[in-house]
Structure formats: structure tokens, C-alpha cells
Design a protein around this nucleic acid. Structure first.
Lengths: 142, 142
DNA sequence: CCCGCAATTTAGAATTGTTCTAAATCTTGA
DNA sequence: TCAAGATTTAGAACAATTCTAAATTGCGGG
């Protein structure tokens, strides 16, 4: 994981958002910071709660707006598992998500960069790989 | 796709449910029939509407219960894409789901049976592969 | 064959997650 | 400085799912 200075970070955000026709606002900065600060795949609600700690006036709708903006600009990914709330992940490196059925934790897992062969004519834009199972910790505790 | 007689079908259902400690009820049969009849990855709501055509008294909660029962027993799979409602798929053959961003259709796509290497200690139970892109039809129309 | 228990279903309320609305605020470029 | 467009806000509205308590069903034992 390459570290990035605050300034570089801001510039990166501005660029990526700009390319999608969006602005960098304090709220979007804040939501992005929340995602980067604790990469535990929080739900929109969790992001809302964390963001409020340093930006108490931020609203629910804004968090959804910001998350959507980040996703559209390629700064974050949605992670959907089961029927629960959608989670968000700022790791844009190619990876999948391992969900531990015992403790609920979601882990990023590297994937072999393999071409996924699709039937003729299908144009893939994006892959989402979710794996369900038991993580090492929970497996041992059994 | 191997055809199955109604009788064989019922026996298969009874067995699979039984192995999970569940009974085969008329409602579960009906929900399963709905899934098998039109394999377009319906949401719980859509299953509810279709099931009511031949079983008008069936309730919302029962449809969720039946779908859960089928999933637990390995007779159907959940398909979660984006933030929308969860969809259901009676195809238990190993496959992934291609979602066309243009027309919204969900296609079953065969996957190469490849071992997905996981970090040490992780025990995988189940893989879910979702692919976003454009289907051949929509790609041509552009 | 009937009984009682546990599983299941039911209607509807409650909860949770997400989107919408209209008004206020902020930017940006002319 | 101003107008136009983007963004944020609070709260209502909507959608998806789960819960609840009561009624029904169906199997195993007597």
C-alpha cells in the first residue's frame, strides 16, 4: 500500500472526481477519509456515523451522494453480500471479498489476474467476486 | 439440463429439504416451481406475485421463508447485485452472473472450474461471481 | 384413529436501507 | 457582481426485509 501525503491525496481526489464531472467538496473528502481510515467495509450508515464525528452537520443523503460520487469516479467500490446493507471499500486494487460466516468480517483477498472467458459478444466492465466461508481465526476457535 | 418428472422432482425436494431438517410443504413446492418455470432471476417480490397466480393465499413472509429454506437446502442460490433487491436462481450448477447495465438482464455464465487460491487458513464454502457489462444485444444496438 | 407438539403459514406491523423533494448554500465562470 | 448549475440539508417517502402473535398443518405416539 503506497502512502500518500494529504496534499497528493487531495489532488488525486480532485482529478478523479473531475474526470467524472464532479467536484471535490469537504463532504466528499470527509467520506473518503472515513473509508481510508478504517478499511473494514462499513455500510453507508456506519460511514454516516463516523463522518459525523468530525463533521456533525453532514446528512444521510449526502453520505449516499458522496459514496455514489466516489464509486462513479473509481475511488471506491460497492461490496454487496447477501441481503444486508451495501458496504464500501476504498481499495481499488483488483481483489475479491471473503466474508466469514462466523464472525462477519469481510477480508480483501488478492485474486490471480486471470482472464475470465465470457460467451461471445459479452463485454465485461467489472468483476465482483465474493467468497463465503470461515476465516482462520474462527476456524481455529471451533 | 436434465429433465425431471414431477414425481422425481418432489422426491428430490423432500430429500434436500429433509437433509436440512425442513419439510416439503405446498408453499415451498410452489415457490420452487416458480423459480424453475421462468429462470430470469426474479426478486422475492416477483416470486410472490407469480406464486399468487396459482396459490392466491400465499403471503409475503412465506415467500421469504420458502426462499430461505430452498437456499439453505442447496436448491437455489441468492444473487445480489448492487443495492437492489436480492434475486433468486434455481441453477445449482457452478456458474456466475452477468448483469447487463443497459437492459438489466441477468445471464447465467459458465465458469472455468478453476481453483481460487486463498490465503492460508481461509476455508471457502461458496463463491459468488458477478460480472457487470453489456450483453451482445445491447452492444449491437448502440 | 385421535392427540399433542413442533413446524409452518398468515396478515400486518415494524424495522432497516435507500431514494426523493424542495429549499438553502456554495462555486464557478462570464 | 451575478446568474447558472452543482451540492448539501432535513425530513418525508418508498422499498426491501424481518418480526410478531395467532391460526393451521402434519407427523409420531398412544
Amino acid at each position: 500500500m503506497k502512502a500518500r501525503s494529504h496534499h497528493e491525496d487531495e489532488q488525486h481526489l480532485t482529478e478523479q472526481l473531475g474526470a467524472t464531472g464532479l467536484r471535490l467538496t469537504p463532504q466528499r473528502q470527509q467520506v473518503y477519509d472515513v473509508l481510508r481510515h478504517k478499511r473494514d467495509h462499513p455500510t453507508a450508515e456506519e460511514v454516516f456515523i463516523r463522518a459525523k464525528k468530525t463533521m456533525p452537520e453532514i446528512s444521510h443523503a449526502t453520505v449516499y451522494n458522496c459514496l455514489d460520487a466516489l464509486v462513479k469516479s473509481g475511488l471506491a467500490r460497492q461490496v454487496t453480500l447477501d441481503r444486508g446493507a451495501t458496504r464500501y471499500c476504498p481499495n481499488m486494487h483488483e481483489h475479491g471479498h471473503f466474508h466469514c460466516d462466523a464472525c462477519g468480517t469481510v477480508f480483501d483477498v488478492d485474486l490471480p489476474a486471470q482472464a475470465m472467458p465470457l460467451p461471445k459478444g459479452f463485454k465485461a466492465e467489472h468483476f465482483d467476486i465474493a467468497i463465503h466461508g470461515v476465516c482462520p481465526d474462527c476456524d481455529q476457535k471451533k
